[in-house]
Structures are given as C-alpha cells and as structure tokens.
Design a protein around this nucleic acid. Sequence first.
DNA 1: GGACACATTATGAACGTTCAAATGAACGAT
DNA 2: ATCGTTCATTTGAACGTTCATAATGTGTCC
Lengths: 346, 346
Amino acid sequence: MLNSHQPARATIVDVARAAGVSRQTVSNAINSPERVSPDTLARVLKVVDELNYRPSSAARTLRHQRAGAVGTELNAVTDIPSDVALPFLTALTLSAPRHACHMVPFASREAFPMLDGYQDMVRRRLVDAFVLTDTHPADPRPDWLEQAGIPYASFGRIYDDSSRVWWADVDGSAGTRTAVAHLAESGFRAVGFLGWPAGSAVGDDRRLGWLDGVERHDVVLGPEAAAPQSLTEAITAAEVLLDGLAIGDAVVCASDVLALGVQQAALARGWKPGRDLGITGFDGSATAHLHGITSLVQPLDDIAEHLLTIVHDQLAGAPAPTQGTLFLPTLTVGASTVTTSTKGTP
Amino acid sequence: MLNSHQPARATIVDVARAAGVSRQTVSNAINSPERVSPDTLARVLKVVDELNYRPSSAARTLRHQRAGAVGTELNAVTDIPSDVALPFLTALTLSAPRHACHMVPFASREAFPMLDGYQDMVRRRLVDAFVLTDTHPADPRPDWLEQAGIPYASFGRIYDDSSRVWWADVDGSAGTRTAVAHLAESGFRAVGFLGWPAGSAVGDDRRLGWLDGVERHDVVLGPEAAAPQSLTEAITAAEVLLDGLAIGDAVVCASDVLALGVQQAALARGWKPGRDLGITGFDGSATAHLHGITSLVQPLDDIAEHLLTIVHDQLAGAPAPTQGTLFLPTLTVGASTVTTSTKGTP
DNA sequence: GGACACATTATGAACGTTCAAATGAACGAT
DNA sequence: ATCGTTCATTTGAACGTTCATAATGTGTCC
C-alpha cells in the first residue's frame, strides 16, 4: 500500500483551472512572461507554486520535436577508466541545466560496433546531440554524425580532418610551458621530460611546450625519455632519466601516471620529491592529488560549458565557428615542486 | 546548409502506411508480436527495418506516464571523486537497457539542499526512480523518497532504519576474511590490519572480517592501526604498524588508499611488497590496479543489475523484499601478495 | 462614433504512441 | 441457417504541451 500510487501530479490544465485562465496563458506565464499581464502572471505563478507544477518534459519533447538531452558514451571497454572521465561527466552534468537539457550516458562492452549506441539513441529520439570523448584518428563518429545531420561536440581534437571545428581541447604545449616556468621560478636547474612514445598528437604537443619553455626560461635543457601510460614502465624509464639528472633538477611529464613513475623512481634512490627533484604531471587527476604531485588541471568546467554551447548553437542553426577552441590548463602546486621543506636544504 | 534539417524520421503511421496496416498493428508487432498473424508480422517488421523505425520514447513516456529513466546523483561537492563512482555508473548504464530504461545523472555544487535535484527531476517527470549512493546515517533522501512514493534503491546500507530494505551492498567482512585466507595460503605469518577510525559501519565490518579470518586460518594475529582516507596519514599510521611486524608478515587494509600507504611505508624501509610484506586493499579501484596491490573487487555489475531490478519491481508494484542484499567481493591478486619473485627468496 | 492598432487571453490542432473498445472474418456447435 | 467464440485488425480517445490563429477587450485617432 505504501507505494501504490504517486500523488496525482498537476498538469497545465489543473493550474489553468485553479487560476481561472486558459492552458495557453499558463504556458505563456512560464515560457514568455512578458506576454501576460502582471496581475494574471502573479496569480498564475502563485498557483504554479502551490500545486508544485512543472511542465512535463515528455510532452514538451513530443511537441517541440526535441529531446532536450545530450548523449555521451562511457568507455566500458577498458578496465581502467580515464582519470578525467568522471570529473568531465560531472562538469557536463552541472552545465546541462544552463542549456535547458540533461545528459544521457550510454555504454557498450563491444569494442567494434561503436556506432550502434549512437544510432539507437537517435532513432528513439532520446537525445538531440552528442558529446564525444576519446576521439582518435580515423574515428568514424564525426563523419557519421555529420552525414546524419546530428549535432555533436568533441572533447579533444578531431585529427582526421582539419575542417572539423566542433571541438574543444586543452592547450598541451601552453601547459608544459607553464610547468617549466614554475620550475624555473622555484629554482630548479635542469629540466628533463618524460613523455609518451612519439607519434601521439597530444604527447608531441606537450613535449613541444617543454622544449619551448626551457628555451624561454632560465633553466638548462635536461634529457628526455618516453614510456607508455603504465606505472611500471614509467618507473623503468624514469630510472634511466634520473641517471642523467642531479639533485636540484626537475622533470616535466606528459601525464600524472608518468609523473608518479618519476616520483617513485626518485624515492627509490632517496631523492625527496620537491626538495631534491621537481616533478610536474598533467591532467590534475586524482592520482596527482593523492600523491602530492604538481599538475596541470584541465579546465573541465569551462570545456563542458563550451561544448554544450557548441551543440546548442548547432541545434539553433547558428553559423559554425572557424576552428576548434583551446583552453589553458592551470597549475596546481603539490609537494613535488615545493623546495622549502621544514627540514629542507636552503 | 549541411545541418539544416535531420532526415525526416519515420513515425508509426509511416510504417503503417507502408505496410498497409493500421497504427495499432504496427504497435502490436513491436510490443506484443504474438497478437499479430505471422505473415503480417513479417511484413511489418520488414518495413520497420527498412524505414529504420523506432518508437519515440517521448510519445511512449507521455502515453505510459512513465519516463523509463532512473536518476542518479553525481557527487560534485568533494574534489576527489570516489574511485568506484565511474565504474558503478558505467555498470548502471550497461544494465539499464536490460530494464528498458536509461540513466539520467544530475549534480549540484551545493552541499546543503540535497533534495532539490531529486524534486526537480520528479516534478518534470524526467525519471521514475533513483539510485542512491553514499547514503549516510540521517540521510534525508530515503525518508523523503518513501513519503513521496518514489521508488529508489541504494548502493550501500541505509543505516537509519533497519526496516529499510531497498539496498544492496558489498559484504565487507566476507571480503577481508577472504583476504586473510589468501594471505594464509600464500604463507604469510602474522596478519595486521590498517583500518579507518572506529565508528564507521563499513570500516568496522571490514575489521571484523580480518579478526574472524585470523581466527580461522593458520596465521598469527598482528597489530592494528587506523588512519583516515588520506595517503599521508595512511603512511604515518603504516610506519607505526610496520614496527610491530617483520618480514614475512602481512597487512589487510580497509581500503586501497590505506593499502597504498602501507606499500609506500614498506618501500621506504626497503621491504619489497609481496616478497617481504603482504598487502591487501579493498574496492578494486584504479589506484590498486595502478600500484599492483591485491584488492577486493566490488561486483559492481551484479550490484547495478540488482538495484535496477529493485526499482523495476517497485514500479511494477511487486512485494518488497524482507531485507537488503549483500554481494561478495572477489579477490584480484596483484604484486603485493605474490611471494615468488623472479629474484626472490625461496 | 467608427475604424484601427494593440495588448491580452482563449481555442483548435498537432506532436507519436498505446489503451479500450469496436469491427470484421472464420469456424463450430446448435 | 443462426448464434456465439475466437482471432486479427481497426478506430477513437487520451497522455500534456505549445504553435498558429482566433477572439476579446482597450484605448486612440480622425
């Protein structure tokens, strides 16, 4: 008996009846208040409040032929989720109400038929648009979505084709340049680099920022090494890298996991991160936070807001921008670049 | 011109016309195929396929007075997200289609007015039910939802009131008991415990499993210590704990972060995790995976499936269960409990 | 005072679907 | 031959909203 029936929910006609006006006047009071006289507006809104009325999103969707929802795929294929996936989804979810929509996540364990989930959501008209993540070269999704006329926005460059403009990304080289500047200010001498194997666009970009930063600031060019996104391999690579560095030097890393590898390798040879060796990571992930590693935090809130603006504009038929947008990461300082320890060397 | 208009989407009447039948027959062909003759069924389904028809979820929602969606709140208040939040949401998202629904996340930066998001989604009829996470004692949500007649299911016990039955959780004591058994089999001698400060129901439960396991298996009771969910504090506590242990002993931890603290403390004194000291964590988080720590993986897929079944049953008016459900975590072995290293001691 | 502009409110229709009830056809049983 | 029965299919209505349009009132100008 407890959960037999939800309390009868008020509809627009209930409000209209109670306020002594017509459906349409209630609709106007909510959607275009300027079209209704001040006193009736007040009366209607009072009733709306009393009855706790909110327009049914389903009815609106049916009428407007617009779901008011944006789909986004959760990566359920790899076991280890990206460190930024949840914060990014949270940022999208927080931004969505500002764009009068909500997010609808979907996922699939199949690696191959990537488009199925997208097709299904479109056909059922559950979403109007998509936010893509983890776009890679030869990604079929942008192509398919454009041909189907479905708006989308990608977190991450679309490498396929430079004519694609519906994306926002983090300015990697600006980030590592900032990291070098910070290390220079903190008094570190030589600055090395631990990146990913060459060929990754994101990684190459971050490496360039390091090179550029070293040139611009008062630090010595240190050695560089590369490792895949794995802690053990990062440690191995870091050990070699540290052989070419001395106490008082620093390492800029292309990711937080790589930075963690450097930190572990440093600790293994008795170097205290921060005091003896500067280390910076990239992404501002929970991993960096947990281990006190200075990192470059991605402005996920801004990016999410921008991406939803993009799809909103597309739905409204606004003209396309001429290019994608880069956002600057911000440096958060952790123990790994703080030289003045309580028992530290001057 | 590119994205001027999406291709005209087929509706049920389009299919009906093309197949030479009525709306309702198409509807039946999709929803109750047994009610339509075999040959017309085939004909209709063929047209459905050709036109790529899928019922509009908005129209269905309006007709059925059911959103076919389940809301779940993303924690946007604390900076550091839970390690299991994303895998759990992914599991829910994967399970949802099996229950003919989809997930709708929502979030708020406000810590205080927790119910606002829930109220809003219900009033707009965007969701039929909720999946709760991070339920805590004196949590207002279960009470409010039950009074409002809104189905819900909680991942995590509802401590308030034992009459609450709409939850599923991980069997913590069974987990740590399994961990002790594994350590005993692996030949570790004494087994200590690093937990959270007493008073947390989850933590106390996991501690009991350790005690119980030590009693049942051929290991010596080691010392115990406590630390909050912070790496630096975990390391500090672990240092004290290790003073009471010797090479060949082990530590069971209430969480992966605590286990990481033990691992770091062990490395700091030159003990190799696995070979010299067994370490187990809890949750099977990305942290544990990254650092090669043996952990107890929560069966998130099963839990998600169960929770959606619960809300589905509530919506269908099925009788309530008599109690919540516990799920057993499974042990994944990492380097932190592997004694036979390539260059190891026999 | 009548025509006109304007502001405000009201009415019919439609979005796409499914339920409830009606229609028609086939088939035995009486 | 007629009457139920059953099965396959169709029709009318409704879910709640907003668009397009119509109706109403209110004042202004000549």
